[in-house]
Amino acid sequence: MNVFRLAGDVSHLVAIIILLLKIWRSRSCAGISGKSQLLFALVFTTRYLDLFTVYISAYNTIMKVVFLALSYATVYLIYMRFRNTYDSENDSFRVEFLLVPVIGLSFLEHYAFTPMEVLWTFSIFLEAVAIMPQLFMITKTGEAESITTHYLFFLGLYRALYIANWVWRYHTEGFFDQIAVVSGVVQTIFYCDFFYLYVTKVVQGRSKMSLP
């Protein structure tokens, strides 16, 4: 464990909590892409199956349980509890356009052709594109509430910190996980455009980030 990865995991946790609290306190999921949250719950489900097979550390186990619980709670709030505030019309990204390539790629590129490895690879590739429905929804509505942008900022920060973690691990312990790194870099690139908007718009203290 290094400070970059710890900060990344904390930033990821903060993002998830920001979104969950926003939905719970405003009792509304307007402007939130339920599809992205479903994809994130699928990412955690397919990646954390090793909860039942290997024990790595208390931190690892606790964080996996927390991420699974919070992501399912978020999906529950969107599709059950506050479903009448769910903006399905604007949440119109065709997730099959993400799932089919990701499933195909995880069958082509993996470390071992075993269920656990293929599912893990699937979760890595899926996480890279899971935010697309949310970013698409923001471009469609043309704006994002500032809390939603904070959510995206911390998600992007988590990915940027993971890249720093991989650089650090490569130089200190020669660690290099090709699938995770390639997919992680692609995922981080998707946030770059948003980061620019976030810094130029939201930091100016405007309540909503409206896209140009």
Binding site: I56, N60, K64, F67, Y111, F175, D177, A180
Partner: peptide, 10 residues
């Protein structure tokens, strides 16, 4: 290439 190594990252 970390094939089969313990996946300790979240």
């Amino acid at each position: 290439q970390e094939d089969g190594a313990v996946k300790d990252e979240l």
